[in-house]
C-alpha cells in the first residue's frame, strides 16, 4: 500500500510540471499575435509582444494609440514601425521613452512610413535617446528634431520635398559618428570614413540659401531628386568638400557646369545623357573624380577636351574609361 502511495506521489510530481508547462505553451500560442500580420495593436497584445527581446517588426501597423505606444516603449530592442503613416503627439511622446538599444544598432526606432509630423510629435521624438529613422518624412520644420537627427549615427536620410535654410544648416551639422553605447565615451566613425551622408531623394528644387546651408556638410551629399540645378545653388554646393551625387540631373547648363567644376570633390552625374555646348570644357576643369556614365554620345571635340580630365569615368562604349 505504502509503495503504491509513494508511486502515485512520484507520478503526480512528474505529471504536474508537465501539465503546467503544456498549458503555458498552449496559452502563449493563443495569446502571442503574429507581428507581421497585425494591423491594429491593443495594449494587451503590446504587452505580450514586448515580453520578447530583440527586433520587433510590425510592418502592417498603420495606427498606434498612445497607450500601446507607451507599452511598446518598454520593448528591449529595435522597434520597426514602418507601416505607420501618421503619429499623434501623445503616441510620439510614448515612443520617445523607448530606450536606445544597448550596444550598437543602425537605428532604434524605425518610422519610415511617416510623411508628416505635428510640431508636438516632432518635439516628442526629438527627446528620444536613440536613433530615429524617418526616411519618408516629407517636411521637417522642427529644429530640435533636425538637431537630434543630425547628431545620430550614420546617414541622414529624409523624404523631404522642401527644406528651410535653418533646418538644412542644422542637418548639415551631421558628422556621421556615434557613441558606442557599450563603451561610453568611445566614438564610432562610419566604415567608409565619410564625414557624413546627407540624402534627400525627394528634394526636387534647391535654392541658393538652402544650398549654402548644406555646404556646411563635408561628406556625401545625395540629391538624386533634383532634375535641374541652378548655377547659383551649384556655386554654393561647390564650396563644400566630399562627394556630390546628382544622379537625377538630366540637363545641365554651361553656367551650372562651370560652377560645379569648382567643386573639389567627387562629382557624380550618372543620369546626364549629353553635355551642353561648352559643358565639356567647363567640366574638364573639375579636379576630382567625375562620373559621367550616363552619357549616350559625345562629340569628338568634347572627347578631346574631356580627355584632359585627370579622373573621369565614362561609359566604355563611348570612349576612354578611367
Amino acid at each position: 500500500m505504502r509503495r503504491n502511495a509513494m508511486k502515485r506521489i512520484k507520478i503526480r510530481r512528474l505529471l504536474l510540471p508537465a501539465l503546467v508547462f503544456s498549458l503555458g505553451v498552449h496559452a502563449l500560442a493563443i495569446a502571442a499575435p503574429d507581428p507581421a500580420k497585425l494591423v491594429e495593436l491593443t495594449v494587451e497584445q503590446a504587452e505580450v509582444l514586448v515580453a520578447k527581446k530583440g527586433r520587433l517588426s510590425l510592418p502592417g501597423l498603420t495606427w498606434l494609440s498612445a497607450e500601446s505606444a507607451a507599452v511598446l516603449a518598454r520593448h528591449e530592442g529595435e522597434l520597426e514601425l514602418n507601416g505607420l503613416t501618421e503619429l499623434s503627439g501623445a503616441a510620439a511622446a510614448g515612443l520617445s521613452k523607448h530606450a536606445a538599444v544597448p550596444g550598437f544598432a543602425r537605428s532604434d526606432l524605425y518610422l519610415n512610413g511617416i510623411r508628416h509630423l505635428s510640431v508636438q510629435a516632432a518635439e516628442a521624438l526629438a527627446a528620444h535617446k536613440g536613433c530615429v529613422s524617418l526616411h519618408g518624412l516629407e517636411s521637417l520644420d522642427s529644429l530640435p528634431l533636425a538637431t537630434k537627427i543630425a547628431a545620430q549615427w550614420g546617414e541622414v536620410r529624409l523624404g523631404v520635398t522642401t527644406l528651410t535654410p535653418d533646418v538644412a544648416a542644422e542637418l548639415a551639422r551631421s558628422r556621421g559618428v556615434s557613441e558606442d553605447r557599450s563603451r561610453p565615451g568611445v566614438v564610432i566613425r562610419r566604415g567608409d570614413k565619410a564625414a557624413s551622408i546627407l540624402r534627400f531623394d525627394r528634394l526636387t528644387s534647391l535654392g541658393k540659401e538652402v544650398a549654402q546651408a548644406l555646404a556646411g556638410a563635408d561628406g556625401v551629399l545625395v540629391l538624386n531628386g533634383l532634375e535641374r540645378l541652378e548655377a547659383g545653388a551649384a556655386e554654393q554646393l561647390s564650396l563644400r568638400k566630399g562627394t556630390l551625387v546628382l544622379n537625377g540631373i538630366k540637363e545641365l547648363s554651361v553656367e551650372t557646369a562651370a560652377a560645379l567644376s569648382a567643386f573639389p570633390g567627387e562629382l557624380v552625374l550618372k543620369a546626364l545623357p549629353s553635355l551642353p555646348s561648352g559643358g565639356a570644357a567647363a567640366l574638364a576643369r573639375h579636379k576630382g573624380r567625375l562620373y559621367l556614365t550616363g552619357l549616350k554620345s559625345l562629340t569628338e571635340a568634347d572627347r578631346q577636351v574631356l580627355g584632359k580630365h585627370p579622373n573621369l569615368v565614362l561609359p566604355r562604349e563611348i570612349g576612354f574609361s578611367q
Binding site: 567608409d192 545625395v222 538624386n224 562627394t243 551625387v245 544622379n247 550618372k270
Partner: peptide, 13 residues
C-alpha cells in the same frame, strides 16, 4: 555598400 551612391544610378539605387 560603402560606395553605393557613386556606384549606382538613381533607379539602380
Amino acid at each position: 555598400t560603402d560606395n553605393k551612391y557613386t556606384l549606382l544610378g538613381k533607379e539602380q539605387l
